[in-house]
Simulated scan of single mutants.
Amino acid sequence: MSTADDLKKLRLKAQIGITTVLGLVSIYILLTQPDNSSLQKWAIGTLGIIVGYWLK
């Protein structure tokens, strides 16, 4: 059976994994897409959400 600590560790690992994947994709988009593209706006918004989430 899982304890509460195991579930907290799993949740933290999932949060870090999702943050890493979305962060890397966003940075790649920012570096490769032309200015003012809709993908670049998405990438900036995603990075803002990530920073806001971890600073809460």
Rank of each mutant, 00 (worst) to 15 (best):
M1W: 06
M1V: 10
L22E: 12
V51Y: 05
I16D: 11
T32S: 15
K56E: 14
A43M: 02
I29Q: 05
L30K: 00
Y53V: 05
L31M: 11
L30Q: 05
L24C: 14
L47I: 11
L55E: 06
N36I: 04
A43D: 03
L55A: 13
L30G: 03
A4F: 10
T19W: 08
A43W: 01
T20H: 13
W42S: 00
K13H: 01
D6L: 02
I49D: 06
K41G: 00
L12P: 00
D35A: 15
W54S: 07
T32R: 12
I27S: 05
D6T: 00
Q40R: 14
I16W: 06
Y28K: 10
K9G: 06
W42I: 09
T3M: 04
L30T: 02
L12M: 04
K56V: 13
I50F: 08
K41P: 01
G52R: 04
V51H: 02
Y28E: 10
L12F: 04
L24D: 11
G45Y: 08
T32P: 11
V51A: 10
A4P: 02
W54V: 10
G45A: 06
T3Q: 02
I16V: 13
A14P: 02
S2Q: 00
S2W: 10
N36A: 13
D35Q: 13
L55D: 04
Q40Y: 01
L12E: 08
I50H: 05
S2Y: 00
I27N: 02
I16G: 02
L7P: 03
D6C: 00
G52N: 07
I18L: 13
M1S: 10
L55R: 05
G45Q: 09
T32C: 13
L39A: 03
W42T: 09
K41Y: 09
T3G: 13
D6W: 01
Q40M: 09
S26G: 08
G52D: 07
L39P: 00
G52P: 04
S37A: 05
L12C: 01
I29E: 02
I18V: 12
Q15G: 06
D35G: 13
D35K: 15
G45R: 04
D6M: 03
S2C: 02
G23L: 09
D5R: 14
V51C: 08
A43R: 00
I44Y: 06
L47E: 10
T46C: 10
G17R: 11
I16A: 10
L55N: 03
N36C: 04
Q40C: 03
Q15D: 05
K56D: 12
K41D: 11
G23I: 02
L22G: 01
G52C: 07
K41H: 13
S26P: 12
S37T: 15
L10Q: 10
G48A: 11
